[in-house]
Design a binder for these strands. Structure first.
Lengths: 370, 370
DNA sequence: TGATTGCAAGAAATCGATTTCTCAAATAAA
DNA sequence: TTTATTTGAGAAATCGATTTCTTGCAATCA
């Protein structure tokens, strides 16, 4: 059926080219191109003939040739932290889907938190002439992106800001997820909620803390009932936070942490002290790292929607292509959402009166929650 | 630093092209090409000058132009079942790594067991002129691959065999993992091991069963102590198998299933009957599906090495490119390996005498096991 | 010494599209 | 009716490489 390729060097695929279509339709290649690209300058009867020929021969334009002349490769780069963290495959899939809908192909690379790996991948991106890169990685160092910046490649980032005019940092709406958290806790009956903040110089930590303050104010909790501990986003910071909250005079019945590692530190202290989570104290994290699913009990935490993140990243690239100034006020927001697992329950004083309450809510709701 | 791109249409990247290199080195573009591609027909002193120019200008050949003239896109396709199953991200990463080392880019698509999705992705692959596709998907229907076959694109598959001369099915060495399983059980002290087979018309099931028979013979178990139940690879099949084995006169102390769904069915029956796994009966699955990690107890099962699978797939494509006949005897094998989780333990009669034995082996050894 | 061969390197063709240029025909304006 | 303008479609240039074709020069041989 298909032409047999001999052992020789030169490989010619059996794809139909534009000249064949042109001959079949009795027009020039230029006309075929115009029709295929939807230009209105072609007479209807000719266009019809061309479409018929395209249809009959099963013509699809050669993307390499097209890329060559247009200077646009229609390839994007996607850099993620680690592929084994379930957060990222979902993000990858969503990003590929949006990109695919717009006829872009995606080169995916996982840094695995390894600088050399990242550098190598970024070099491949530059060599492939990608038209834009979504840097969906955490803990990245901005100078890693220098090669991309030097090539003036549009960049959308989530955690680092590249030193480039053609780049854009997505606005993650931390407040949304934190508000959900507080509402969730309030619904369970908590009225004393501690907050373990991250180091405050960092903007995202200030944002998270402010979001917390805002949310507890909304449900009318006093400052006394919402103690704040400034930690450092590490496991140890979490243990210190836990010890601090345990000493508070009216002891909080729930502890909200500004990242998961601290929450895991809190869990550890509670386990050591024999304080049962969630029965005696509820714990909520932030980030939804891989580990969160495997802690004991599995951690209720806030994570951002991978789908929204992917779409936002793509929209960000579109904005950069369009050349809209990065300081334009139509900034791109990404919602966050609460993932309810098993580290939250009604506070002890309430729980006893609710003993008969169904425990069915403890099913995994990871995907549904966002 | 980089030339500013005006709002105009035509986009020219700031990449150095071969002509600039040629001028800088004072030679013709042809010579640059010859040097860059390592052809020996260039005088040493000229080659040196060219390399210097390439270095100084940071030249990297435009892959689109190269693809156009050579007819080779240097893009591969990778089709997987579902990205949320942790099996696949690992496979994807490994495959991208091998491909990247050989200067190939990979287009990844996840079918999510959805026919339309798969078709769409395959169409994108054809349009992109991929040079080969690794179909690392289970439960695929071979006619899904028809479009690829029609384009004569080399295919390496794992579960389906495409009706194409330029395709190749990887040989999975089921025997290896099953032998590991039996050894593992024997080491724990099991001497009566049941096997729940899948439907026997299918070749892979025959292979798995034969492997089982071989392995138990090797450790000297009689047919009476190794009862076999022919199931259908479903959950219900597993429950039937369990009921069958419970009725066996010398009841097996361990049950090996030829896929995970059946093993999960076995677990269910045991739970219902109050028979503790692994204390009273050990259960082993096959496939290492996503669920296996979340059963109660987490299922010890056989899975194939993602890394080996990825490498094998790439080597398979290389073979097809080289044009070696598919029936050549250097078939490509993929090892399987036992993933020890928590559904296996010494048999009850032995366990009591070993009460003091460390339970530390129960840590997760997923990655280490392969 | 002159004819032949070998070889290195430049000139030019090629890949398959898009896009600019060009020109003839059709329409509009005078 | 004649001239100016628009329009549609083909011819040709272009993108950036690779590869074939040529050519000039040096080496080999008679």
């Amino acid at each position: 059926m298909s032409a047999k390729v001999p052992a020789g060097k030169k490989i010619r695929s059996n794809h139909v080219d534009i000249v064949q279509v042109a001959q079949h339709a009795g027009v020039s290649p230029a006309t075929v191109s115009r029709v295929a690209n939807g230009q209105s300058t072609v007479a209807k009867h000719l266009a019809k003939r061309v479409w018929k020929a395209i249809e009959e021969l099963g013509y699809t334009p050669n993307p390499q040739a097209r890329a060559l002349v247009s200077g646009r490769s229609r390839v994007l780069g996607l850099l993620v932290s680690e592929i084994t963290n379930p957060f990222f495959p979902e993000l990858m899939q969503s990003f590929e889907d949006v990109a695919g809908e717009h006829d872009f192909e995606v080169m995916i690379g996982s840094t695995n938190y390894n600088r050399e790996r990242a550098k190598l991948f970024i070099r491949r991106l530059v060599q492939r002439r990608v038209e834009g890169v979504a840097v969906m990685t955490f803990r990245a160092e901005s100078h890693l992106l220098d090669e991309l910046v030097a090539q003036d490649i549009p960049l959308v980032t989530i955690d680092v800001s590249a030193n480039s005019a053609r780049s854009l940092v997505l606005e993650v709406d931390y407040a949304y997820g934190i508000d959900q958290t507080i509402q969730h806790l309030a619904l369970l009956g908590h009225r004393r909620i501690g907050f373990a903040s991250g180091p405050l110089p960092h903007l995202t930590n200030v944002r998270r803390r402010d979001a917390f303050l805002n949310s507890v104010k909304k449900i009318g909790l006093s400052a006394q009932n919402t103690p704040i501990f400034i930690g450092d986003h590490t496991f140890e910071g979490g243990t210190l936070a836990a010890l601090h909250f345990l000493k508070c005079k009216p002891r909080p019945t729930a502890i909200v942490c500004s990242n998961d590692m601290m929450a895991i530190g809190v869990l550890r202290v509670m386990t050591e002290r024999g304080i049962r989570v969630p029965r005696e104290v509820s714990v909520v994290g932030f980030d939804d790292i891989h580990l969160a699913e495997f802690t004991n009990p599995p951690l209720t935490t806030v994570c951002m929607s991978r789908q929204e993140l992917a779409h936002a990243a793509f929209r960000g690239l579109e904005q950069l292509w369009a050349g809209s100034s990065p300081d334009s006020n139509n900034s791109i927001r990404v919602r966050t959402g609460l993932v309810i697992r098993q580290s939250t329950d009604p506070p002890l004083e309430l729980a006893d009166s609710l003993r008969t309450r169904s425990r069915s809510r403890k099913v995994k709701v990871r995907s549904a929650a966002i």
